[in-house]
């Protein structure tokens, strides 16, 4: 049987992917380019696909489950280069990248759409679900688009990478309130939002280094919110006032 090896670039790093299902590559569009040879970095085995199915909604197709599972596998490759997928809505505002992160269904996209409606033309979506964070040698962290843009498919796969400016952890609550988090308070949540379960000490140390760079680069806030316009205005005012400092 003909192998299905394709190369996909994430944050400038090529990952060679063997697709289990031929239709999965359609999720990547022109980002997946066929390459010669049989060597690959990532492959979702039938066993892994079956296991992944158990953790995802029943109405997801097999090729969508494979597509989702490839993020984590690709992170094992990317972490060697100081990069990793991160579960967040990422948008560009004033030439810098901002991340809204939270468990699914907590209103990340709602905050983005509110902001776009309240302040037309101010912000653009970089990635709607899992951008790549890149730690550079100078200590800065850059946010790259990725093919994983969430249920609404909001994102621009060709958006240029932008320097990270800030992170907001979202929580649903009866009142709108925002507060700055210390590094100690932010570490557990940030760690859990990376799309990588480390297998080795090197991967743990790679994630720790990336998290360290993120926290040194960008302030982190926690926004408890109702998902209404007032919460979005509170968010915008806070980011406007606190965008030049980090932990």
């Amino acid at each position: 049987m003909r192998e299905r090896i394709f190369q996909i670039e994430f944050a400038g790093h090529a990952v060679r992917c063997r697709f289990l299902l031929p239709t999965t590559r359609l999720h990547f569009g022109t980002l997946a380019r066929p390459v010669e040879g049989n060597e690959y970095d990532v492959y979702v085995t039938p066993e892994r696909l079956a296991k992944a199915r158990e953790t995802m909604p029943a109405d997801y197709s097999n090729n969508y489950v494979e597509y989702r599972t490839l993020t984590e596998l690709s992170s094992h490759v990317l972490i060697r280069f100081g990069c990793c997928f991160f579960h967040a809505v990422s948008f560009c505002w004033r030439e810098r990248a901002w991340l809204l992160t939270a468990p699914s269904g907590t209103g990340k996209t709602t905050q983005f759409l509110n902001w776009q409606r309240l302040h037309p033309g101010e912000i653009t979506m970089i990635c709607g679900d899992m951008p790549v964070l890149e730690q550079r040698d100078d200590g800065t962290v850059w946010v790259h688009p990725s093919p994983w843009n969430g249920k609404e498919d909001l994102g621009d796969r060709n958006h240029p990478p932008m320097p990270l400016a800030g992170i907001v952890l979202l929580k649903r609550g009866p009142e709108n309130a925002i507060s700055r988090l210390s590094a100690a308070d932010a570490i557990p949540t940030l760690f859990s939002q990376f799309i990588l379960l480390p297998d080795t000490a090197d991967e743990i140390l790679g994630l720790a280094s990336l998290t360290d760079a993120v926290l040194r680069t960008a302030p982190v806030w926690e926004l408890t919110n109702r998902g209404d316009d007032a919460s979005t205005e509170l968010l915008r005012q806070t980011l406007e006032g606190g965008s030049h400092d980090s932990i």
Partner: peptide
Amino acid sequence: VILTSICGEYVLVSARSVQ
């Protein structure tokens, strides 16, 4: 289980195999 430091905070992190 690995001890590491992030922004001066000490953290124990578990590999997938022991999570």
